[in-house]
Simulated scan of single mutants.
Amino acid sequence: MEWNKKTTAYFPESQRRKLEEIEKYLSKQEYFSNENLNKSRIILLLVDNFYELFVENNSRTKYPNRLDQLKKIKPKDNEKLLRDISQIRQMQDIQALITLANYQNLVQQNDYDPRKKLRSFNYGDSKEINVLMNRILQILKEDVVQAKQIKDTNQKKKKLR
């Protein structure tokens, strides 16, 4: 297909209505308040958006699969993802501080050598590491249960108001 600088496109009535709805939607957006949104500009925006969402970063994904992926994304998903990322960063900070504190304590104990006391973490046959990891996993499970209880209690309070 060869494209000229000026190309005529045929829009059936249903597609024309959709284009008009897109035009109304965009004209209400503050982002475009200083722009003249004619049909050509809207078509260019549609092409740019399609390119960015389907071609640029996902060129190997088939169109129907990528469309399904995009349809599944909800605003709540993005908010939850941002909260999760924030929590992960906070946990990494805490973990770094704990690691530094542990290192400092180990350095002060001249006779302690973790390589002699604890066998390989990856090998998994160290009783001390297994006990420690199981305790950490248990604490995490208890925390999830407690958080759920707090959430349920708060929801019940909101309903009673």
Rank of each mutant, 00 (worst) to 15 (best):
L106V: 10
K76V: 13
L100C: 00
L46A: 07
N58S: 02
K62Y: 14
S86F: 07
S14D: 15
S14V: 11
S33I: 10
R89Y: 11
E13L: 10
S59L: 03
S86H: 07
N102C: 09
D93I: 08
N102D: 06
I88M: 04
F50G: 01
K18T: 06
I94C: 06
N58K: 01
T61C: 07
K24A: 15
P64R: 00
F54S: 01
S86E: 07
E21M: 09
I43K: 00
L44G: 11
R16H: 08
K72R: 15
V107R: 13
A96G: 11
F32I: 02
E20A: 03
I43Y: 01
L37Y: 01
V107M: 13
R17A: 14
K71M: 09
L81F: 14
R83H: 13
N105V: 04
R60H: 15
A101N: 11
L46M: 09
E79A: 14
N34F: 10
I22P: 03
N78V: 15
Y25K: 09
S27M: 07
K76R: 14
D48G: 03
K80A: 11
V55S: 00
E56I: 06
I43Q: 00
S86Y: 08
L44D: 12
E21Y: 05
N49M: 03
E79M: 13
I88Q: 06
E13Y: 08
Y25R: 10
P64A: 00
F50K: 00
K72F: 05
L81V: 08
Q15T: 13
Q15M: 13
F50I: 00
R17D: 14
L82S: 12
S40W: 02
I73D: 04
T61S: 08
R66E: 00
K18M: 08
I98G: 07
N57S: 02
N102W: 05
Y25C: 08
E35L: 09
A101L: 11
L67G: 02
D48P: 01
L26Y: 06
R16L: 13
R89P: 00
K39S: 04
D68T: 07
V107A: 14
K24H: 12
E13C: 04
Q108I: 02
Q92Y: 12
R89V: 08
K39L: 07
L46T: 03
R41M: 10
L100R: 02
N49I: 02
E21A: 09
N34H: 10
D93S: 11
L82F: 14
K39M: 06
L26P: 03
S33K: 14
V107S: 10
I43R: 01
E79I: 14
K80H: 07
L67S: 05
N36V: 05
R17M: 14
K28W: 12
S14K: 11
V47H: 03
L70E: 00
V47A: 05
Q15N: 12
N57T: 02
